[in-house]
Write a protein that binds this DNA or RNA. Structure first.
Lengths: 212, 212
DNA sequence: TAGATAATCGAATATGAATTTAATTATATC
DNA sequence: GATATAATTAAATTCATATTCGATTATCTA
């Protein structure tokens, strides 16, 4: 009856990757459907066979990226290593994921301003399906959750006396900011590997919070 | 002969401020001339009396913001306080400027992706005057300079034995990233004042680099 | 007051981008 | 092989936005 996707056909996932790439290069608003389509040798019209519209597509990219990092971070939080080692690993993996999945990573962390803005008041007479609104809100909730994972570990470290009594939200945001910033400047083939960068940043994060 | 700007007329600076506001809210690409014009009770057409075009206007915003921070930071670098105190002050002022000049600050630090992109290869068939290209490159040079100011102090601190031997570029970028991230989440009237936030972040920056 | 120029606007232009539609091609299953 | 459906496209539609232009209004200097 139904036809299965042909092997040579471009699937949803391929498009998402391409979109992530373009997103990283051009930013949310500057990314056009044609840009994305070209990347996978399709026409813009074809994309609508896979995604309802541009917002849906781009949001899917962001969701994917965010989920990926969370998947990496989450197990660490729930493991039974010390808070210090937890934090080190979390920062390390956060940064590493950003450098490895440059596209997805950068998109995930970065191009959220227009979305946040939409949240605030939906400026231009943009029509957004309820479905989109729901997904977008879920995305923001996930971002919250991502931050909460860090806060939890910081809290734990303070309670166990491994960390000094920092202002948890501020410290957490600073660390995440430093990590995310990597997505802004990182270029493959630079002086340091993603690994090396991740180590260095993780080290700084720990030093900033270690109890005296 | 020539007529001087009338008092009630909207001047270049007012427009720049308004543009910075919109820029912070909507991002580079999503910012329309009409948005900016409305903010100062003008029509989009009127803006062209003050600025050649959109790029010129937005670039002027970014330049302004960047210059402002540099003006704050520069004297500290050249003062004769200790590297530790220099760094603390620099971070503090960087963050403080971001929170105070929310608009300018955020715009300055943030909406650079499209510009960088333009730099890379000028995707869409965009026509950009030589003048614009020059200004844009100068802007990027200033950004470099801003970072160099930090690196210089870090270097000095290492040489004087106040700081541990960090990887200077990575540490510097991390600090700047953490600072800039404030522009992403800071909202006026939150739990902490800009001052308080600035202090906390500066403190973390120092702890991360202090010699053991 | 007159003349010059600044500042502004309404309307027209041009263009780029998202999205829709109807048609075409490919491939799975029967 | 027949047919239903997936995948894709070219072309048309719609709409928002940057930008231009000519006209209008305000205010300065002489």
């Amino acid at each position: 009856m139904a036809r299965k996707p042909a092997d040579q056909s471009v699937n949803r996932d391929t498009i998402l990757h391409a979109a992530a790439d373009v997103l990283r290069r051009n930013g949310y608003e500057a990314t056009t459907m044609k840009d994305i389509a070209s990347e996978v040798n399709l026409t813009a019209a074809s994309l609508y066979h896979h995604f309802r519209n541009k917002d849906d597509l781009l949001l899917a990219v962001l969701e994917g990226g965010l989920d990926l990092v969370i998947q990496k971070i989450e197990p660490i939080v729930n493991s039974d290593i010390s808070p210090t080692e937890k934090l080190r690993e979390m920062v390390r993996l956060h940064v590493l994921t950003l450098t490895h999945n440059t596209a997805v990573g950068a998109a995930m962390i970065f191009e959220i301003r227009p979305l946040m803005n939409l949240k605030a008041s939906g400026r231009n007479g943009s029509h957004h399906s309820d479905d989109f609104i729901v997904k977008r809100d879920a995305f923001f909730a996930q971002r919250e959750y991502f931050e909460i994972l860090f806060r939890r570990v910081v809290q734990e470290g303070i309670e166990k006396g491994e960390f000094r009594e920092v202002d948890i939200p501020i410290y957490t945001k600073s660390i995440i900011g430093a990590n995310n910033w990597v997505a802004v400047w990182y270029k493959e083939g630079g002086r340091l590997s993603g690994e090396a960068i991740a180590e260095l940043i993780a080290d700084g994060a720990i030093r900033a919070i270690k109890a005296d």
